[in-house]
Structure formats: structure tokens, C-alpha cells
Design a protein around this nucleic acid. Structure first.
Length: 167
DNA sequence: GCCAACGTTGGC
DNA sequence: GCCAACGTTGGC
């Protein structure tokens, strides 16, 4: 392995993934076999590139509830399988079907994630906005809609720490 | 390649 | 339910 690949293999990266709890909540993840699920249905090229090229086994994930009453980070997960073709794109009955995707050259990718911890309490979006140290988070940028996005280690650690303290 | 129209996301 | 912001589509 060339040295830069070796370094990559040793480096853990951090991500945030959004899910609408009415579709798939952190409790749903907790109830999956092995508390593991494939992260299907991402249909945005920027997020696709992350799923296909960047996100590696062992990377850690903030599980975020979006489009709900109290948007919040709910817990953490670990990437348990790196990018592979999202088979729902080839299923005409799926909401995620994409007639223009070529099976020889799949357009959409997914990873598997496994629950790591459910926070004792949600760390709300409002709370994240109050922390000066989190100002740079992709999630907090105006108009930011990426459903899979990079997070800095410092940001990840700050949020995990917040979750262990009373609101 | 431009850009208007449309659809979606997601906080509020 | 509203609406701002964004991404995609498709005519030209």
C-alpha cells in the first residue's frame, strides 16, 4: 500500500447524516438486526460522491433528525460497509428508482451504518446554533441541505460531550 | 452555456 | 402551511 493510502486507512473521518424520523428514526436503527442498516435513497450528487469515494469503514456518524418538530442530533453510528451501489435505483417499484441509471455504471451509492450510541438526550439544532465553536458546521450554514455532510472531529466531540450534560 | 420553471428540502 | 434556498431539467 502506498504511504498516502496507509495514512488514509488510519485516519477516521466524521460525518453527519440526516433522516426524517417519520421515515427512519434512530429507534428504527436500534431495532434493525445487528442495529445496522443500509443508507439508501441519497439522490444528490455531492452526497453521492461522499458515499462512493470518501466514507470508510470505521468512520463515525452523527445521526440527525430533520424535518420534524425538534430537529436534533440523536446519537452516533459507525460506518460498517463502505460505498456500494444502491440497488433501489434499479427497482421500478421503489421510490428511489432511477430509470436513467445504468447497472454497468450505477449512478447512486450507499453505505451501511451501525448504531454506536443513542444519546441520553437529543442535542437540538437550536443548541448547536448557540455554540460559538460550532459556527462552522456545514449543517448550520445558510441554505445548507446536504443530507450527508462532513463534520470536523472537534465538532463531533463537542456534540457528544453536550449530549452527556443536562440541557 | 444560459436561465426560467419546477420540484425538493427543511426550518420555522 | 409558509417560504427561502437549493438542485435539476429542458428549451433555446
Amino acid at each position: 500500500m502506498p504511504p498516502e493510502r496507509l495514512l488514509e486507512a488510519m485516519t477516521i473521518n466524521y460525518w453527519l447524516m440526516k433522516s426524517e424520523p417519520t421515515t427512519f428514526s434512530i429507534d428504527d436503527l436500534a431495532n434493525q438486526p445487528d442495529q445496522t442498516t443500509c443508507w439508501e435513497g441519497v439522490r444528490n450528487y455531492q452526497a453521492r460522491n461522499l458515499l462512493r469515494d470518501e466514507i470508510q469503514v470505521g468512520d463515525r456518524v452523527l445521526f440527525y433528525h430533520s424535518a420534524c418538530k425538534v430537529p436534533a442530533v440523536m446519537g452516533t453510528a459507525v460506518v460498517s460497509r463502505s460505498g456500494y451501489a444502491d440497488h433501489f435505483q434499479f427497482d421500478p417499484k421503489s421510490n428511489y428508482y432511477d430509470a436513467k441509471s445504468d447497472p454497468e455504471n450505477p449512478r447512486w451509492y450507499m453505505v451501511d451504518i451501525t448504531l454506536e450510541s443513542e444519546f441520553e438526550r437529543p442535542v437540538t439544532l437550536a443548541e448547536l446554533r448557540e455554540r460559538a465553536g460550532l459556527k462552522g458546521m456545514v449543517l448550520l450554514q445558510k441554505g445548507s441541505r446536504l443530507s450527508v455532510q462532513p463534520v470536523k472531529k472537534k465538532e463531533f466531540d463537542t456534540i457528544v460531550k453536550l449530549a452527556s450534560k443536562p440541557a
